[in-house]
């Protein structure tokens, strides 16, 4: 009988879920939204539909991310740091450093060959160090977030964005736009500003290659380019950079389950029942 393992990563902006056996069976990505944190079951339903599996087929489920405690059917909670590490080394066995830029935070993680975390650093204090920075600027320029990367890499002369606060940077961008600075230069400047801040944080760790970039920020080509410039290193990006946390959670579940089996230990699991927690 095949074994299936699920990981669900409830981030501040996006919810990601993965089902795994000996390979990735299915994954889904959707917005967390103000109430979605409490509605993890909806995401799981969608994931099970996609995998064509019933909930009871899942052997072990791990939740991760900021909303990990709000997943009643998860058998275990693990922080996103450990899950990203595990997921990334599965995709890139040579990975030793991870940079993750999410919607509300950014992190640097150093890992060993087995995917174990050796050190980490997080910024969760300031929007200017997270994907929110780019989101706010894109919004104020009326540009779809998916397009900002492609537009910014057309720049030959990135603007200097000197404000370190998202709100003031938004004003600065508006002023530069009024002065006639081209949009690609403005966006390239915004990416450089974010990359500079994140690299300064991550440099507190011992950065070793391969450097892998994950999170929503990794879908932005302009940000990848800026990070490579500030790190002075080649950066690798997974095919779907948002799911590494959920993938790592599923992999950890598999590891935990097999360890328990090899030691003949009983592993506690939650009832396989989806329940919506009403908060309003």
């Amino acid at each position: 009988m095949p074994e299936y393992f699920a990981g669900i990563d409830i981030g501040s902006t996006m919810t990601k879920a993965v089902i795994l056996s000996d390979r990735i069976i299915a994954f889904v990505i959707g917005p967390t939204g103000p109430e979605q944190r409490r509605l993890a079951d909806k995401v799981m339903e969608e994931l099970l539909d996609k995998a064509d599996l019933p909930l009871k087929a899942l052997t072990y489920i791990i939740s991760t991310g900021y909303g990990r405690i709000n997943v009643p059917f998860a058998d275990k909670q693990v922080t996103e740091i450990s899950c990203h590490a595990k997921g990334v080394v599965f995709l890139f066995p040579g990975a030793r450093t991870i940079i993750d830029i999410g919607g509300q935070d950014s992190k640097g993680i150093t890992i060993d060959a087995t995917g174990r975390t050796t050190n980490f650093i997080m910024n969760d204090k300031c929007a200017a160090g997270s994907g929110r920075f780019v989101e706010v600027i894109a919004d104020s320029l009326g540009i779809d977030l998916d397009r900002v990367g492609d537009i910014s890499i057309q720049s030959n002369s990135p603007a200097q964005i000197s404000n370190i606060c998202t709100i003031w940077a938004q004003q600065e961008v508006a002023a530069r736009l009024a002065e006639g600075t081209p949009v690609p230069d403005l966006l390239a400047g915004v990416h450089r500003s974010l990359a500079d801040r994140v690299v300064r944080m991550v440099k507190r760790l011992k950065i070793l290659p391969d450097v892998i970039f994950t999170g929503g920020g990794a879908k932005n080509k302009g940000l990848v380019q800026a990070l490579e410039e500030y790190l002075d290193a080649k950066i690798l990006v997974p095919p779907e950079p948002l799911i590494t946390g959920a993938l790592g959670a599923a992999l950890l579940g598999k590891e935990i389950f097999h360890r328990a089996v090899s030691k003949n230990q009983l592993l506690e699991t939650k009832p396989r029942r989806l329940e919506t927690i009403q908060i309003l």
């Binding site: 900021y66 922080t79 740091i81 450990s82 174990r116 975390t117 050796t118 980490f120 969760d124 204090k125």
Partner: peptide, 25 residues
């Protein structure tokens, strides 16, 4: 006003997992 218990404890949880992984290795 500079403190968030949730964020702090999330970092602590991640740190404990890191220590555990080092211990296991």
């Amino acid at each position: 006003t500079s403190y968030s218990e949730m964020d702090t404890r999330n970092k602590i949880d991640a740190f404990i997992e890191t220590l555990e992984s080092v211990r296991q290795t």
